[in-house]
Design a protein around this nucleic acid. Structure first.
Length: 645
RNA sequence: GCUAAUGUGGCGCAGCUGGUAGCGCAAUUGAUUCGUAAUCAAUAGGUCGCCGGUUCGAAUCCGGCCAUUAGCUCCA
């Protein structure tokens, strides 16, 4: 029998051999860190016996799959510990996830986070006992019987969903047995360092109509130092949290009398908003967009035509009561129907297309109370919205244009390396959420897929993430806590043109339905600002800094010159403030540094005498003296290059 | 909306088992006119998230609401 290793080398055995044995034959060191293996691409455990020619890759904690095996076993240890501390608990599921694992429990009486310590102590005992994990398989009927004996109702439900002839695997460690597909570590003693991180609620099977269970999150590593490092990194990340930093830096605030999800942009935040909107509006104009400015609300009729009334009414702020025969209005949750109405004003020719409408558009969505988060998820927000109306043959080129614009924005923000692409498709099972026309969906998704493949977009696919009217390319980004949100979206809409009876006249004088793309260029201002705060820890690149230069006036004698310098800089389009408080230089430098101002100009008697400015750059320190003219060249260069600090 | 937790001046925190609120930073004022990350002093600022209950007495105990956080569900 021949075993081919990852590096291409081969090993020969006369009879069956376990993965663990092969690892030991390769090296003693590898045998110690082997967590599992990939045999012909399939993940299995170290106990797996190889009995024919195969390709073998030994998995350690350095491999993503290795980590998952390790963490999955840790979740079983958690379950065993919880079961031992709370014998009446019922087990649900407990997978490994990015950065750790969780397990869902149904406690007879819900426990509080203080009890995690107690559970950790019990887990330590289980690890110390070093129980071997033994796998066994039962036919479906016997499996159900076993779980009934243990009173594990959720496990029975899981088994009942498996095919009738399925062989169902279990893992036993000590006297604890859990339904599980595996693979697992050979014994519990291999877990070197773990920590339970939080206790939260989670619906059984992710459905809000089901019972809410208690979910315990944890993480584990094969080295204590790595766990400490991970936990420290989490603490560090919290310092960049826009929700904390954004408030500290005076970018935004909230007020309970104004309401949840309604942040107030303070002068610095409003300036940042203005800088971004002016910039992206100009960029869109260069790319052939026409601006619209449409109402923030409309009669319910409009949303009935668009389909939002049927699919999105709960998410809208509605005014007036239809039952009482009142005129009903709703704040707009998106801009599409408004721009379509503009399109429909006047007959359009194929010569008019593509039409690209852009609007810096404020939207209102009545998010559930538990959803709001800083600037990332809010009830009123403004997006760089646009709709492109084109002929079928123009669709790909227009899609490409949208993608290029989005990528240009990301590059200028320095976020291009931090995003991932998601092809969001409908869920044919969920007929409530989507316009139920499978043929059209198939057409739309096939068109989109072919465009994405042509453009070589490295996407992942997600079922049930589409808009109700069409598939999307979502550009996803993770915040400082690792939570992912959509930053930018490009959507193909195959339905609303029909609803609004939109058309154009083609070359042959025939009436045709146009294709529509919905898209954002730099996304939603609030969310983008949040991500930028986290990306730069508040130290924005010079081109987007609300305050680019602070003039530090050293004494009252240099005040007039300081003001004059500020005035000249403002004349050159630089955003500048003067600090002429009666404080020491050190104090003012510290203040400017904490405010993350990129450039400081220090003006004392010497500078006035020599007719120069002393420049200090954030992150670089003292740059010495130069003329104001030289400084202007330097900062202009910094701004033009969109240099990222 | 659901589960768990939290809510004390702009921010970060003290305030034990109920006896009527303090500290640091920031702010303001005065003095200081200073050379590359904190000058000194004084002053002001709080219906202890809001409403109700228990009590002779509530920041502290109980209930409801509001807001915040983690997660679930939903979503740009």
């Amino acid at each position: 029998m021949q075993i081919t290793l990852k590096d291409g080398s081969q090993m020969h055995y006369d009879g069956p051999v376990s993965v663990a044995q092969v690892a030991a034959d390769i090296s003693e060191g590898l045998a110690r860190v082997a967590l599992g293996a990939k045999v012909d691409g399939k993940v299995c455990e170290t106990a797996t016996v190889l009995d024919r020619d195969c390709a073998l890759e030994i998995l350690t904690f350095r491999d993503e799959e290795g980590k998952r095996i390790y963490r999955h076993t840790c979740s079983h240890i958690l379950a065993q510990a919880v079961k031992s501390v709370y014998p009446t608990v019922k087990l649900a599921i407990g997978p490994a996830i990015d950065n750790g694992f969780y397990y869902d429990f149904d406690f007879k009486t819900p426990i509080s986070a203080e009890n995690l310590d107690k559970i950790e102590q019990e887990m330590k005992k289980i690890i110390k006992a070093n129980y071997p994990l033994k796998r066994f398989v039962l036919p479906r009927r016997k499996a159900i019987e076993l779980m009934r004996k243990y009173g594990e109702d959720y496990k029975i439900e899981l088994i009942e969903d498996l095919p009738a002839d399925a062989q169902i695997s279990f893992y036993q460690q000590g006297d604890f047995v859990d339904l599980c597909a595996g693979p697992h570590l050979p014994c519990t003693g291999m877990i070197k360092a773990f920590k339970l991180t939080s206790l939260t609620g989670a619906y059984w099977r992710g459905n809000e109509k089901n019972k809410m269970l208690s979910r315990i999150y944890g993480t584990c590593f094969d080295k204590k130092s790595d766990l400490t490092e991970y936990l420290t990194a989490l603490e560090e990340a919290k310092k960049r949290d826009h929700n904390k930093l954004g408030r500290e830096l005076g970018i935004f605030m909230t007020d309970e009398n104004i309401g949840q999800g309604l942040p107030l942009l303070m002068p610095k935040g409003a300036k940042l908003f203005q800088i971004l909107s002016r910039w992206v509006e100009d960029e869109e104009e260069r790319r052939g967009y026409l601006r619209t400015k449409t109402p923030y609300m409309a009669k319910s009729n409009l949303y009935k035509i668009s389909g939002h009334w049927d699919h999105y009414k709960d998410g809208m702020f509605v005014m007036g009561d239809e039952e009482k025969d009142e005129e009903v209005f709703a704040l707009r949750p998106m801009t599409c129907p408004f721009q379509y109405t503009i399109y429909n004003n006047g007959l359009k020719s194929y010569r008019d297309l593509p039409l690209r409408y852009g609007e810096t558009s404020t939207l209102f969505r009545n998010e559930s109370s538990g959803e709001m988060h800083g600037l990332i998820r809010v009830r009123q927000f403004t997006i760089s919205e646009g709709h492109l109306i084109c002929t079928p043959s123009q669709l790909e080129e227009e899609f490409k244009g949208c993608l290029e614009l989005a990528q240009y924005c990301l590059k200028c923000f320095g976020l291009d390396g931090d995003v991932s692409y998601r092809f969001s498709k409908w869920d044919p099972q969920d007929t409530d959420k989507y316009i139920n026309d499978p043929d059209k969906w198939e057409e739309a998704e096939a068109t989109m897929r072919s465009i994405l493949d042509h453009l070589r977009v490295p996407y992942t696919e997600a079922i049930g993430e589409a808009a109700f009217y069409g598939p999307k390319l979502d550009i996803q980004i993770k915040n400082v806590h690792g939570k992912e949100d959509t930053l930018i979206t490009i959507q193909v809409d195959m339905f609303l043109a029909e609803n609004f009876d939109m058309s154009y006249i083609d070359e042959n004088g025939e009436k045709r339905r146009p294709y529509i793309l919905h898209r954002t260029s730099m996304g939603c201002y609030e969310r983008t600002i949040a991500l930028l705060i986290e990306k730069f820890a508040g130290a924005f690149p010079v081109w987007m800094s609300p305050e680019q230069v602070r003039v530090l006036c050293l004494t009252d004698r240099t005040r007039a010159v300081s003001d004059e310098i500020a005035c000249k800089l403002r004349g050159a389009g630089i955003r500048v403030e003067v600090d002429s408080r009666s404080e020491t230089v050190g104090y003012k430098i510290r203040a400017a540094q904490l405010d993350k101002v990129p450039y400081m100009l220090i003006i004392g008697d010497k500078e006035v005498e020599e007719g120069v400015v002393s420049v200090r750059r954030r992150g670089e320190g003292d740059l010495g003296k130069m003329t104001l003219g030289d400084f202007l060249v330097k900062i202009a260069d910094d701004i033009d290059s969109k240099r990222l600090d």
